[in-house]
């Protein structure tokens, strides 16, 4: 019985690891063979023409994620500071913590249609802004909860030492507590970033996608995951190749971010992050 159980446990671990390795190998083979310099420098070409790339989607993703980070990271960190420094144990803090968890669980497609009716309908246009807002909102819960947990790990003596030197409370929170916890807080931000970088569902009805070159967030904007989705569903081989290349680029970015986070937290002062 003991042997059987051990065997089953090993088998299930293998069954979990195998698809992962299969997906990665498949991605790398397919992606690397279709990746070329054109991918990074050209915009999509019409069906039937050779070549073309996803330069506009890469830039678009960058802009959307930039807008998202500008919204999600400050609000998330401020929320975390409130939970850890001011609201500790209070009713309001508990309510906000629960709300953040709820927000974390909202399906991304629901976020997409909510932002569509909040921003796209009143402004009468699909826009980079609306996509950025959707991504930003999705970043908030992760950033907020990680910030809170990291701040709670900062010893009380550090705060009291700062206050004893006559530092005002706000300054002590920002330059002492938050700074002490910064490796962990940055970890949270990177995790949130990596998570929304591959989100497609909230962008379908907000950023919408664009096959032309645009850096104006007031217009419909291309994004890497969105472009992969459209190309993956198309019947053309040429577009499938581009989608594989796009997938590889996206996954390399995300895995790099996650690994970096893992590396920093495993050797940083604040172990146990992530």
């Amino acid at each position: 019985m003991d042997g059987v159980a051990t065997g089953l446990a090993i088998l299930s671990t293998a069954l979990v690891v195998v698809p992962l390795v299969a997906i990665f190998i498949y991605l790398i083979i397919k992606g690397a063979s279709s990746l070329s310099i054109n991918f990074f420098t050209q915009i999509p070409k019409p069906v039937g023409e050779e070549g073309g790339g996803m330069a506009n989607a890469i830039v678009g993703s960058g802009i959307l994620l930039g807008i998202g980070s500008l919204i999600g990271i400050p609000i998330g960190i401020a929320g975390g500071i409130f939970l850890a420094e001011f609201g500790r144990g209070g009713k309001l803090a508990n309510a906000i913590r629960f709300t953040a968890d709820v927000l974390n669980g909202v399906p991304s497609i629901v976020m997409g249609i909510a932002i569509y009716s909040l921003i796209v309908v009143p402004t009468h246009t699909f826009s980079g802004y609306s996509g950025g807002v959707a991504l930003g909102i999705m970043m908030i819960p992760t950033v907020c909860r990680t910030t809170e947990e990291m701040l709670l790990m900062v010893p009380h003596a550090v705060r009291e030492a700062a206050l004893a030197l006559g530092v005002p409370n706000w300054r002590s929170v920002l330059s002492i507590t938050l700074k002490t916890a910064s490796p962990g807080v940055i970890t949270g931000c990177m995790l949130a970033f990596a998570r929304v970088a591959g989100e497609t569902a909230p962008l379908i009805f907000t950023a919408f996608g664009n096959s032309n070159w645009t850096v104006n967030p007031n217009e419909a904007m291309a994004a890497l995951p969105l472009q992969i989705y459209v190309y993956a569903l198309s019947p053309y081989d040429e577009w499938h190749k581009l989608a594989w290349a796009g997938s590889l680029v996206l996954i390399v970015l995300i895995v790099a971010a996650v690994s970096l986070v893992r590396y920093v937290t495993s050797r940083g002062v604040l172990k146990g992050a992530s």
Binding site: I23, L27, R195, I228, W244, S247, L250, I251
Partner: peptide, 11 residues
Amino acid sequence: AAIPSVIYGFW
């Protein structure tokens, strides 16, 4: 968990 949903779908 880090692989985007759309890439799972494509695969």
